[in-house]
Design a protein around this nucleic acid. Structure first.
Lengths: 189, 189
DNA sequence: TCCTTTATATATCATATGATATATATCATG
DNA sequence: CATGATATATATCATATGATATATAAAGGA
């Protein structure tokens, strides 16, 4: 029989995620992981075959971490939409490099991560419709546009392009949402 | 005397900008530029000393290209604010990689590029104040928040995270602005 | 025409990193 | 406890790229 595995895939991904958190995914390489785990570069190639495979695993792990943020919103019985936005921005604040990895690189793995938001979308859209007496189209438009603006905040934060206090963020999200709500409910009257 | 220069700094930066446009600034290296210009790597090191110096020059050139977009807005006698937003997004559409270079990397050279917007800011703020009867604080807030949302559109486009038709962009910008205008003029009444 | 200067080419070095080949040590099972 | 399987270490290769040293050739002035 074979010696038992000392360095698991999980340990390698853990290490790669830590490196990514500190310096971005481009700083991840087999020798560096070896250095962090106190082993050679072999376990990485043994477990993943190629660095690209490891990077995919890092992206998958980053998505899990992201999903944990978004799933927090499901605990909210009301104003879930607001909570999703707050969690999206919180992820950008706390996990700048992971945010950049998932949402500021080329689009490949893009629409998939939004699955979670999409799971939530039905709930959110009906909550918006009910709470503010909106048509589905109105709710969809407000939802989408608020999300674009929220992405603006989050991506500014993730690149240190701008910093915001929690109060500023809260105010921004609120201003975007309320503004768009007013804009899109105005024309009927 | 010396032979006359065949490969100027300008030619090198031109070439580096073209490479950046196609593949991003990380794809720029001395040998590659040599290949594009039909020379060796020497002229690059001779003219710039280090690759970092060349990259700085590329960033400076990218800023010039960006400024040309923003300066277009100065031709507008009215609704200059809208035109700035449109030009910002247009820059992201036409110059994805340059947009990412200037606005989606770590913050170092950030606030500087905004100089041009800042030059414009006084004009824009007073136009907003006059046209919509706003206080300076209202105008500033609407200006800032619209800009954050506009950055959201632009950065989504620059990463192919999402695509928009010109009409959609125009509608988004308008919705953001009008919404924020309504939001921030509501409370007085 | 020769000489000096210098722009460019060629060759080379150093380092980083993906990847593989080979050696070695470990471990359960017969 | 000997054996086969394999997880890891070590060594090595290939390539990319920043950088430098040396050679070469062009250009104009003496």
């Amino acid at each position: 029989m074979a010696p038992k595995t000392k360095i698991t895939k999980e340990m390698i991904v853990d290490s790669a995620i830590e490196i990514t958190r500190k310096e971005g995914i481009d700083a991840v390489n087999a020798r560096r992981i070896g250095a962090e785990l106190g082993c050679s570069l072999q376990p990485v190639y043994y477990q993943f075959g190629t660095m690209d495979a490891l990077r995919e695993a890092v992206i998958a792990r980053a998505k899990e971490i992201y999903n944990a943020y978004i799933n927090e919103s499901k605990k909210a019985e009301e104003k879930r939409f607001k909570v999703v936005g707050e969690q999206y921005v919180l992820f950008a604040i706390r996990e700048k490099q992971l945010f950049r990895l998932l949402f500021m690189r080329n689009a490949n793995h893009r629409l998939h991560e939004m699955e979670i938001i999409d799971e939530n979308t039905d709930y959110i859209l009906s909550e918006l419709q009910e709470r503010y007496s909106l048509t589905l189209d109105q709710a969809k438009k407000i939802h989408f546009e608020t999300w674009v603006a929220t992405h603006g905040i989050a991506s500014m934060i993730a690149t240190d392009y701008m910093t915001f206090t929690p109060d500023q963020i809260s105010e921004l999200l609120s201003d975007f949402f309320v503004g768009l709500l007013m804009k899109h409910t105005w024309e009927e009257k």
